[in-house]
Write a protein that binds this DNA or RNA. Structure first.
Lengths: 205, 205
DNA sequence: CCGCTTTCGATACGACCCGTAGCGTAACTG
DNA sequence: CAGTTACGCTACGGGTCGTATCGAAAGCGG
């Protein structure tokens, strides 16, 4: 059995400052160069760190970018606005704000594209980014049920599938609007989306 | 004024067979290697073509992949099934079938990610891929209005925004389900999505 | 204070891919 | 046949990759 920090009880500890500097440098490089032209050597230089240090901590560009982008999603919060419509609208606008940042736009979609051929990378994205978003959907549903805005679903399996559907619809719509259609997510759009979802969920789904 | 084919009335014409071979080789390379490890030299070798020929026709990897993937979306058709619900379900399943192919998964999202930093590339994607999908949404709406399933909207600006919203929701949800959540789009999921959209659109949106 | 262990910075390395240039040949036009 | 363009082939400098090596630095246990 090992303690919570299994590795390295002896020897020189890894510099936490270097970690932060590397991730910040990665985001800066994403803004200036985009994903495809980002090189690990350049990131190391920006961070004031040797290239070997980078390779010691991350397997490659994909893993590094995932970690660098993941922290952007820390600020996601479910606004307890009192109504489900306002909750949805608030989350959509928050998500869109994050996706408006260039380091999120170019970095996130690139690693998602790479994850189609790398199961470990997909799992890493799921744990550090996607699940954090999905939690908001589950939380919002449970609050709405407590308020009586949504019915308590009897079949747990069906309820789970519905939650998955809503998550894919909300996140997918925002991403598609921002990156593919290339238009901004404003308050009016968020309100329209929330209205469509509410009407759709109110009926027997 | 120039004729429909403005360039090259004299000299040796470009080989149409080479074009097809290159695009097919690109798709094969996408399947085997994915976007990031795909190299133009490898594609040229696979196509039995000199590397210089490739560079004469495409500016770079991004443009080549867009053209190679675009033809996958040629098969998209709006099934005139008689009801809006079935139309939506049919389009969703067709779109999902295309996205299930590995060359579409890895190629499409990668170029979309790149297009966040390249306006010309974004426009190329829009013309050769996105608009082709969007046309189905507009066609489906007009058919549904003819059948009386959807109201004739009075405000054209509002109607346009609604169509944009529906398009982002449908396409975004399918893409997100397939690539981010990593789960298959089956008939049941498509039916649920169609149901949510129909209820949402039926009310005053 | 002193070994032990691990990390860090720096440098060097072969391998690969990039994008372009040059050249001789092939294909088509008038 | 002369003119023009596309093609295959080869070669090139430049950049990035990921790894190896080495001495110095930073903590830990005695």
């Amino acid at each position: 059995m090992q303690s919570r920090t299994p590795a390295a009880r002896t020897g020189r500890p890894r510099s936490a400052a270097a970690d932060a500097a590397i991730l910040a440098a990665t985001r800066a490089a994403l803004v200036e160069l985009g994903w495809s032209k980002l090189t690990l050597g350049d990131v190391a230089t920006r961070a004031g760190v040797a290239k070997t240090t980078l390779y010691r901590r991350w397997a490659g560009k994909n893993e590094l970018v995932v970690d660098a982008v993941a922290v952007l999603f820390d600020e996601l919060r479910l606004p307890d606005s009192g109504s489900l419509a306002d909750d949805i609208e608030g989350v959509v606008l928050q998500f869109a704000t994050i996706l408006a940042r260039p380091e999120a736009r170019s970095g996130l979609m690139a690693v998602v594209a790479e994850s189609t051929r790398d199961d470990a990378l997909r799992e890493r994205i799921r744990v550090s980014i996607v699940d954090r978003q999905k939690r908001l959907v589950l939380e919002g549903r449970s609050r709405a049920q407590a308020r009586g805005e949504l019915p308590q679903e009897s079949d747990p399996s069906s309820a789970s599938r519905t939650a998955d559907l809503i998550f894919d619809v909300v996140a997918g719509a925002v991403v598609h609007r921002t990156l593919v259609s290339g238009e901004a997510v404003d308050t009016e759009w968020a309100r329209r989306l929330a209205r469509v979802l509410l009407s759709g969920l109110g009926s027997t789904v």
